[in-house]
Computed example of a mutant assay.
Amino acid sequence: MKVLIPKQHGAWAMLVIPFLLGMVGGGAHLRHIPLFVGWLFLYLAAFPLTMIAKKKNIAYYQKWAVAYSIPAVSLLLASVLMEPGLVLLGLSLFPMFLINLYYARKNNDRALLNDIAAIIVFSAGGLASYWTGAGTLDGWAWFVFTQSILFFVGSAFYVKSMIREKKNKRFKWYSWGYHVILPFLSVVFGAGWAVLGFIPSSIRALLLYGRKLSVKKIGILELVNACVFMAVVSVFLLTI
């Protein structure tokens, strides 16, 4: 049977980057292994659950939901036993998951609010990772969380303005407006010189809008941009 893998390619960067930044900021530890694998399987389990909410091929997606949920729950439970406070973080994210299920039920997965809810959940992976390494949630943990949200919300605005909303002039101004203030927002939330990791996002949002780029090329450029963001913030965290 063919393995069921979510098709939202951009989500992989959201899954991995905040988690890695949390490791950089809080310190790497062997405890990160079960946490990350459990986090990965939780993401994989979320996809068939949203398909079930859409009432699409329920029997098929139920099998995959169970198959992914068992290792996810097992590994995340092991992480919670090592760091019990993580359960509070998980519970706090439950409303975001309900928002995702709501939009899945409405068959409107691409809604901006749905994307933002998912971004908050993915960015919280940085909190969990930092907590697991440092044993606490301090200001730098929240720095990783907020900077990740700011970056990926910008990515959501940009990609929508280039694909689904490319003919929506009002959305263009939403995207441009957000990216103009994005560097200032990052500084307000403590970026310091790490604001340099946001500059490429603002430049590409303003200069590439309206250009005829394939979906594949847009995705590749976003991956490169995300790697630049991660590299700059990582160096910043290592030098504080």
Rank of each mutant, 00 (worst) to 15 (best):
P34V: 02
W39K: 06
D138S: 12
N225H: 03
L150K: 02
K55E: 13
L221G: 01
W140E: 14
G210R: 05
S69T: 09
I218P: 00
G192L: 06
I116M: 13
A205L: 01
I116D: 10
A117L: 09
R110H: 07
L4N: 11
P6N: 06
V233A: 08
M82N: 09
A28H: 09
I5M: 11
L127S: 03
I52F: 11
L207V: 11
E222G: 03
F171R: 09
K160A: 08
L238I: 06
T146C: 15
I163T: 12
V80C: 08
S74F: 14
A134S: 14
K63I: 02
L88M: 14
G210L: 01
L20M: 12
W131I: 05
A118R: 03
T50R: 13
L238H: 05
G85S: 10
L15T: 04
I149H: 06
N168E: 00
G10Y: 00
I181V: 15
L77I: 15
A59C: 03
Q8S: 10
A118Q: 11
I17H: 12
W131M: 13
G125C: 10
V144F: 02
V224N: 04
H9S: 10
Y61G: 05
F198W: 05
V187P: 13
I33Y: 03
K106I: 01
F122I: 09
V87N: 07
R170A: 15
F47G: 15
H32T: 01
A59K: 13
F236M: 11
S186A: 15
S123Q: 05
G90A: 10
S129W: 05
G25R: 02
K212F: 01
T136V: 15
N168C: 00
L86F: 07
A59S: 13
M14Q: 09
Y68F: 11
L15C: 04
N114F: 02
S129V: 07
L208Y: 09
L98D: 02
M230Y: 01
D138A: 10
Q62H: 06
S69R: 09
A156V: 03
Y68S: 13
L91R: 02
A53E: 02
A104S: 14
G125R: 12
I52Y: 08
I218A: 02
G154W: 01
M82D: 12
P200T: 02
F143T: 08
I52V: 14
F143A: 04
G90S: 08
L221F: 05
L30S: 12
P183C: 07
S161E: 05
I203M: 13
V188W: 14
L49Y: 07
S123D: 07
W142Y: 13
